[in-house]
């Protein structure tokens, strides 16, 4: 790869990709965590008990 005068371009390019990856991962973990804990609570509190055969 060449920098064409943009020295330290790696920081900006890789930094932007890493930043996007981190935000997406954090959002996914948050969404999954909330969903899983809600599912667990619904099971424990008996909401899903009568829906076994559906």
């Amino acid at each position: 790869m060449s920098d064409y005068g943009n020295s330290a371009w790696q920081w900006f390019v890789y930094g932007s990709y890493v930043f996007v990856a981190c935000v997406v991962v954090v959002f996914a973990i948050y969404a999954l965590k909330v969903r899983n804990s809600s599912l667990k609570s619904l099971l424990q509190e008996g909401f899903l008990e009568n829906k076994e055969d559906q």
């Binding site: 790869m1 060449s2 920098d3 064409y4 005068g5 943009n6 371009w9 790696q10 900006f12 390019v13 890789y14 932007s16 990709y17 996007v20």
Partner: peptide, 19 residues
């Protein structure tokens, strides 16, 4: 990041375009 070539004007920094 690794397969496509650099831009004639901006060099490698243009790769931010894709994201």
């Amino acid at each position: 990041l690794f397969l496509i070539g650099a831009d004639t004007d901006q060099g490698d920094v243009y790769r931010i375009l894709f994201v």
